[in-house]
């Protein structure tokens, strides 16, 4: 009898131990929601859906996208900042929500304190292109042209104040002594008509926004603002190679959880993200969108990266050109 009780107790004990370990090992037990703080169908949304598809396979539970657009990403980000930190509500954060907006206005969340970073998913670098009517075959010739007296007649476009295209253009002006005029649009898509028509002569934006037009020969690529060349455009030199030092910038897209999410959940998610780099399907799909998968070494490394980006943007946006 006693043996029986002991046996039962032991069984119950092991069962309880197993189940507590199991609870986290079994994460996720139900479907996970990734909030995309932009409306469906945009660039961020499509990338997020590729990632969600991959995570669904890795985690064995459906990972679904919920679009919460508005306020340039502010609304959806705020929702996740206040969500229950149980690993079932995640955020697809981007440069705009975590590096730019907090430097421009009161956003109602803290980009560092309110989130537990998981991993970056995609980093896109800025590609500098010109309309074929511009007489510059490479970056050196472009700088010679834009810094001459006739350079002030040229325009560059952006998808609005504080976007990467705007910052790239103003920094280019500052660095090369040029005076290209900034022409803002409602978004990168809106700018394209004038870029393709040649009313905008110089355009610097993330690869995905431009790639189709480079592939089709409508626009001429000059340089990539990155430390290394892109696999998607192996013939395009980096800015450093083309003679423009310290001119590297771009946008990032990554997965974050609300602050307070258990470490093992974060670790599980990070582990699921790491296999992305070797997944042929993910590589293929992202390449079609003009991106490549990138994964942070650890969640902490991603946290450092976000902090670094926030500081870089703060320093840049404080310059007089942006006031």
């Amino acid at each position: 009898m006693l043996r029986k009780i002991c046996g039962l107790a032991l069984a119950a004990l092991t069962a309880s131990v197993v189940s507590t370990v199991g609870a986290s090992a079994q994460y996720p037990e139900r479907s996970v929601t990734i909030v995309v703080p932009f409306s469906a169908g945009g660039n961020t949304d499509v990338i997020a859906r590729v990632i969600a598809d991959h995570l669904t396979e890795e985690l064995g539970q459906p990972v679904v996208i919920e679009n919460r657009g508005g306020g340039g990403g502010t609304i959806g980000t705020r929702v996740v900042a206040k969500a229950k930190p149980d690993g079932y509500t995640l955020l697809f954060g981007v440069t705009g929500t975590h590096s730019v907006n907090p430097n421009l206005r009161e956003v109602g969340y803290d980009p560092l304190q309110d989130f537990a970073p998981v991993s970056v998913a995609v980093i896109s670098s800025v590609l500098m292109v010109v309309h074929p009517s511009v007489e510059a075959q490479n970056l050196e010739e472009l700088i010679a042209l834009t810094s001459s007296s006739s350079g002030s007649r040229l325009n560059f476009a952006s998808g609005g104040v504080g976007t990467v295209a705007h910052v790239a253009g103003e920094l280019f002006n500052e660095r090369t002594g040029s005076s290209l005029a900034h022409i803002p649009y409602k978004g990168a898509g809106d700018a394209l008509n004038d870029v393709v028509a040649g009313r905008i002569q110089v355009y610097m934006n993330n690869i995905p926004a431009i790639l189709p037009h480079v592939t089709s020969g409508t626009l001429r690529p000059l340089a990539l603002a990155s430390a290394t060349r892109s696999k998607l455009l192996p013939d395009v030199p980096t800015t450093q190679e083309a003679g423009l030092e310290d001119f590297e910038m771009g946008s990032w897209y990554g997965l974050l959880a609300p602050a307070g999410t258990p470490d093992d959940v974060i670790a599980r998610l990070h582990e699921a993200m790491t296999t992305m780099v070797d997944s042929e399907k993910v590589n293929e799909r992202l390449a079609a969108l003009g991106s490549e998968p990138t994964v942070s070494e650890s969640p902490e490394a991603f946290g450092e990266y976000i902090k670094g980006q926030l500081d870089w943007w703060k320093e840049v946006l404080d310059r007089p050109a942006f006031h």
Binding site: S39, A40, G41, G42, N43, V46, V50, G189, L211, P212, H213, T215, S216, G217, T218, E284, R285, A288, L289, G290
Partner: peptide, 20 residues
């Protein structure tokens, strides 16, 4: 914006909308 989704749907299959 809806047309932007169409372009995304084509691009994800490696079809690049444009003159070509």
């Amino acid at each position: 914006p809806t047309m932007a989704i169409m372009i995304g749907a084509l691009m994800i299959h490696g079809v690049v909308p444009g003159p070509l």
